[in-house]
Design a protein around this nucleic acid. Structure first.
Lengths: 188, 188, 188, 188
DNA sequence: GATGAATGAGTCTTCATTCAT
DNA sequence: TATGAATGAAGACTCATTCAT
């Protein structure tokens, strides 16, 4: 009955993700976005009500995909679970820098946006709790040094995900390698 | 006989640094800057020709301070040198996120800006080379695992600096702790 | 064999009238209109060629209904006729504010619109002439003070119609009351 | 020390008043305003933060001028006071249509705007109360018919102000004439 | 030197209208 | 005929930068 869309909401978010990662929250704008999509700038408003709704939807989708995998994780073995978690995070690792900009999103006016931001924040919290739980379990099982405070273990582990994969090793191998170095250290 | 300036170039850069770190390259603007300085917005142009010149000068100063310390480093003992280097980086660690935005700086028009950006890039290169040299030396001295490629060692080491210091330990201790974990690993 | 329309042109104008009165010429828009009608926004173009055609049709219909009653008026007794005229005007009184916006209607392009606006203007003129005639007649019959110029009598009478009916008296009573006050004054 | 302004805030409001009266709240826009002022459109933002702040300031100024005169009114003689009040209202009578649009003003975001709107609403209330008080006093002094409810007397009186002054009589005369007709009626 | 005023380029967003199915 | 998609023109607002005093 009506014309068919030139691109889907999902494709729009794909492009958004790339551009937001490249330019940051403030550097991203709709002119830029429209230049990477077919059609006019105003067409974007057929998909999302405004810029903040786009970015929040983008963030939500990214963290949602992490959440789904993280929720399905078998936590019975702490060590294995941590290694798998690292791999999960890494798939979307770049997005972590962005999630830090979520406070810039203006939620006033759009219920949709507010809900997205809330989801992101809750997911963030969930992941933090889960990670802490696993690290703690590992520490209790005497797998990890206990002269290091739990938050430091968590911080160091979490920080691994942003290690640049300069050799372009596949994610699964790369995460294994980093996990291995985290546990065993760089020392011979 | 000129009127005395209300603040110095250096103070201007101090404020700039804080604000750029807080808001990012695109989020930073001159209105914001002037609100954190005495006097009018237009007065800023008495100090620097334009926004990009300010940011580039700010970046230059930050990396310059790292450079000076890094150049003075005693490299005779690789292990000690690396640990000290980590401490040096950490003093300015937040600035690393920013240096990544240096490509956004528009150098056309201002020779000054161009020179600043070039300095930053050269310094970057120097630091990378120095770090690689030290890690390689350590590896050759059998201090580091040799099943791990050199760039990976370098990447993991370098990535340490952005580990959030959640316990607010003094930098010297914090860098020691991280160095220790990097070498020995998290494992018990 | 065409699909049956979900609503009639007349229903569309009913809604338009309400919304234009509520939001004014510039505040009225097709998105708003479509939200108060079944179906999609673009469907409106099946009924009228554009926004100005809708508003002009709406104005025309309103003044037409006044015209029909005013034309049928028995003018033999000036006083009675004036009172009835007041009642007629009041039925559509709110529309007077709108008719004042008729100059905003862009008639270029649509013959239909041009014709509507012309009709409205002619009707306006007709009503003005009729009213003046009746007031003049009343004045000649010594019903009205003759120290007051005719246009002033007309203006004051006409202005009555916008007196807010705060008590929500039925129009017939309300018009009688105002007519009574107009003639006899507020004085005891 | 700095360039001098091409026009004053007050001049800006003068032009605004004229244009808002001519085009209504929604029809008024900053492009239009800038076309009736020297300089660029963006210069207007040096004077007021946004469109709503301009309109609210304009409304406030108009009602403020009424308020000042109305407050200074000698209310000892109800009849005289009412006549003078009518003259006061008439000076700014056109603005009454506009004050009705004050609900369209978006006050979120600007404290200034909110304060202006509040002032306008309070003033509105004050004037309504004052007028009602005077009419009531006149009624109690047996100057006005007591078969007419007070709100109707008030409504009819207030409605007088919008009677078009077609003969362009000076306001003082015009208000006397209307007051006279209101009291004594149109009847011979 | 310092500064408030001025400005034009650029972004966000809305809306009447057209298009393709 | 009905409709969702597409669009360009327009208007609100911001901001780096220049100007005049």
């Amino acid at each position: 009955m009506s014309r068919k869309q030139a691109y889907s909401r999902s494709e729009l978010l794909d492009v958004t993700k790339r551009l937001v990662l490249e330019h940051g929250y403030d550097g991203f704008n709709l002119k830029l976005l429209s230049q990477h999509l077919p059609g006019a700038r105003s067409t974007i408003y057929q998909y999302y009500a405004n810029k903040d709704e786009i970015i929040s939807a983008c963030m939500k989708r990214a963290i949602q995909s992490i959440m789904e995998k993280a929720s399905a994780l078998d936590e019975s073995d702490a060590s294995t679970a941590l290694q798998e978690l690292l791999a999960i995070y890494m798939e979307e690792f770049k997005f972590h820098q962005l999630l830090g900009d979520s406070y810039k999103i203006k939620t006033n006016g759009s219920e949709e946006t507010r809900a997205n931001v809330e989801y992101v924040e809750n997911a963030h919290e969930f992941l933090k709790v889960q990670l802490t739980r696993l690290v703690q379990k590992a520490q209790q099982e005497k797998l990890l040094r206990d002269d290091i405070p739990l938050p430091v273990h968590v911080g160091v582990f979490f920080n691994l995900i942003s290690t640049p994969n300069m050799m372009n090793v596949p994610v699964s191998q790369w995460s294994k390698l980093l996990f291995d170095m985290w546990m065993g250290g760089a020392k011979k």
